[in-house]
Amino acid sequence: MERHFDEELNDLKHRLTKMCALAETMIGDAIKALVQRDASALTAIQQHEAEVNRLQVEIDEMCFTMIALRQPTASDLRFILGATKTTTDLERLADQAVNISNKAERLMKQDPLKPFVIIPQMTDIARGMVRDSLHAYVNRQVEKAREVIQRDAQLNALKKEINAEMLEFMQRNPATVPYALDIVLVAHNLERIGDHAKNIAENAVFVIEGKDIRHGTENRPAA
């Protein structure tokens, strides 16, 4: 039976998807500015961030109202509780994109220490994790959610790789320290984006299966 409540839940999914798309665009734009030294890529970031913040408040208000008026249970309750957590992760990962854009503004004025290889790889993985975790969440795809969680390890490994590479530059030539440190921080921002996507994927598992798998507690029942 199609319920009026289902329309509200679909509206909630639509807004979450929109918020996710904005956050993902922000990550892409910030990295494009850094790698291609293209200042025009940064023009929309502030505006997108404001929109992401507005959507977070709007979605949280929707969830609050639905809990009060619909008194959801079971899968509906898990979806709505998960949505409020997901907006927090999306807003925070968008903040990480803003942090990257701030560094890109400085770094694009200088020649890079070497061609960008690992940062674009990390970006592809992080953006994919964000997109796929949200997709798994709204479309109830538990296998995809578990696969996103696995991808986080790749991001962590690449971050270590870039840290080692930058350390070598800094040791060889102290003049590279400001630039290399910023690159280390960009890698850290991308790794944090992966962590937020992992949170969303763990949320998706909770919504679909009712299992709370945070902190490695795969087998603990949710209730």
């Binding site: 409540f5 249970t73 079971a74 899968s75 309750l77 898990r78 009712g210 029942p221």
Partner: peptide
């Protein structure tokens, strides 16, 4: 089962559909 389980993580899809008002 315990009420807290039936209304949060029912094991059977039919229970989920009933407590969420789908039928």
């Amino acid at each position: 089962g315990p009420t807290s389980q039936i209304f949060t993580v029912p094991r059977d899809k039919r229970t989920n559909d009933y407590v969420t008002g789908r039928f």
